[in-house]
């Protein structure tokens, strides 16, 4: 469902992604690990079309993302859920409204929105906090809301960039449990992380990046000692 064919991303003198080829199948759970500046975030950005590759080709769910026209990008993004370390919630919107927002901007009918928001609140276990504003929530609750928002549009892939970077180990475990639950329903998860404890515990496929190059790709949770 996601394929990189000899993809290179260059910023002037810096090569962020260097001739990367990889394939991720539907329903897979994949970690992307590597030191700072390894190219993890750039790789995700190339998938959600925030950046375009300098060379190579990216295919996602039958769509060629390589040089996708700007007015086509929203179409691709509706099939993706994106999660960030800093949650990126709208401060003036409640938990429920933050999730609703994702559905509303793509033109979902009102009845369907109500139905889907209730479902998502159940999945992320935030029903009891649905009328709270982000500043009234703990870090874990904020991240659960962000995951809920990413899930709202029935994405085919969830991409998370350091989703547990700001969370303590106990909350991290809860969040990882949530990602597992989402993955169990058949949604592909691609997660960039620094947190090697999490990676070790989950025993999922791990792609290790260093200086923009894939240095290992292990389906059993193994990663390179370079880290």
């Amino acid at each position: 469902m996601l394929e990189f064919k000899n993809v290179t991303k260059r910023y002037k003198d810096l090569i962020a992604i260097d001739n990367v080829s990889l394939e991720i199948s539907r329903g897979e759970f994949v970690f992307l690990v590597g030191p700072n500046g390894a190219g993890k975030s750039t790789l995700l950005e190339l998938i959600y079309c925030e950046e375009h590759p300098t060379k190579g080709q990216i295919i996602f769910d039958g769509m060629d993302l390589t040089n996708m026209r700007r007015n086509q990008v929203p179409k691709a993004r509706r099939k993706m859920g994106i999660i960030f370390q800093d949650f990126k919630l709208l401060p003036n919107y409640t938990v429920k409204e933050n999730i609703e927002f994702a559905l509303r901007v793509v033109g979902t009918k009102k009845g369907k929105i109500v139905e889907r928001v209730a479902e998502v609140l159940d999945i992320v276990d935030m029903h009891h906090r649905k009328d709270y504003y982000p500043e009234q929530l703990s870090g874990g609750e904020q991240q659960r809301t962000a995951i809920g928002r990413a899930l709202a549009n029935w994405p085919k892939i969830i991409m998370a960039d350091e989703p547990t970077g700001n969370l303590d180990p106990m909350i991290t475990e809860i969040i990882m449990g949530l990602f597992s639950k989402i993955n169990d329903t058949g949604t592909t998860v691609l997660m960039a992380t620094h947190d090697l404890n999490v990676v070790k515990k989950m025993k999922k496929r791990v792609i290790t990046l260093n200086k923009g190059i894939v240095i290992s790709d292990d389906s059993q949770g193994g990663f390179s000692l370079v880290l």
């Binding site: 007015n71 929203p74 179409k75 993004r77 994106i82 990126k88 709208l90 927002f101 994702a102 549009n153």
Partner: peptide, 13 residues
Amino acid sequence: DEISIMRYVGATN
């Protein structure tokens, strides 16, 4: 912020 989130969730331009 709102605009960047709108873009990430697939709002058209």
